[in-house]
Amino acid sequence: MPDININIGQSGLKQLLRQQITNNFLLEKHEVAPLFSLLPAALQRTAICFLASDNKYYASDDNTANFNPYHSGQYTIFLYFLSNELYLNREHTLADKVYFLNKTLNCLDLFYQIELPEVFFLDHPVGSVLGRAKYGNYFTFQQNCTVGGNHGIYPHLGENVRLFAGATVIGNSTLGNNVFVSAGAYIKDQDIPDNTIVFGSSPNLTLISKPTEYFLKSSPFKIHREA
């Protein structure tokens, strides 16, 4: 398991989870064991995600992931991974509670059946709703973003897609690799090529092509900064 430093310790994290779920939704006695048994798997996924980040609050120079449950963005990512682990292990009621806890505390909708990539990053994501799209690795989003369906069809997002504040991607849309969707942009049932900045609203989008390096140099991920 990758090294992860939990600033309140794993016992403190267990106590925090137990109390938060109990206070908000009731935690049955029989749910405590599966909740805690799946904690290591969720922490491992959290560590992998954090260690890919170039943000000093997420990873140390000694290749240790830093996890502060009182950092809203970090706790959001962890709770998503925990709810997804519970879902994958058929603990559906408990997955509901952890998902709802994330929604209650952090004010965004990351449903546990959504398959977010191994590595993603969020920046003040209040008000965002991510639907059942296909998400490529190194996905990033900000506040009030929406990814959703249109007539039951959902988008496909490539690697290093970045949604800035208020961006929307819905329906039969395919975004290539290295795509930045600018603040307030609205994409519906359209394809966006690699290495593109998107402005405006469908069907009248403005697409600006840039070299790959443009998208990598501002990436929040180590792998892109080192490229």
Rank of each mutant, 00 (worst) to 15 (best):
N5V: 02
I6G: 05
G9T: 00
G12K: 04
K14S: 12
Q15F: 06
L16M: 13
Q19M: 04
I21R: 06
V32N: 02
A33L: 14
L38T: 06
L39Y: 07
T46S: 15
A47M: 10
S53R: 04
D54Q: 15
N55S: 10
A59M: 05
N63Q: 14
T64H: 05
T64K: 12
F67M: 04
S72K: 14
Q74A: 13
T76E: 13
F78T: 01
F78K: 02
L82Q: 13
S83Y: 10
Y87V: 00
N89E: 09
T93C: 01
T93D: 11
L101N: 06
N102F: 08
T104D: 08
C107K: 15
L116G: 05
L116F: 08
P117G: 08
D123L: 12
P125A: 14
V126E: 14
G127K: 08
S128K: 05
C145Q: 08
V147P: 13
G148F: 13
G148P: 09
G148S: 10
G152K: 07
Y154Q: 03
H156N: 15
V161Q: 07
V161A: 02
I170F: 11
G171K: 09
G171F: 11
S173A: 12
N177P: 01
G184N: 03
I187Q: 05
Q190F: 09
D191F: 06
D194S: 04
N195F: 04
T196Q: 03
T196W: 03
I197S: 00
I208Q: 08
K210M: 12
Y214P: 05
P220E: 10
F221Y: 09
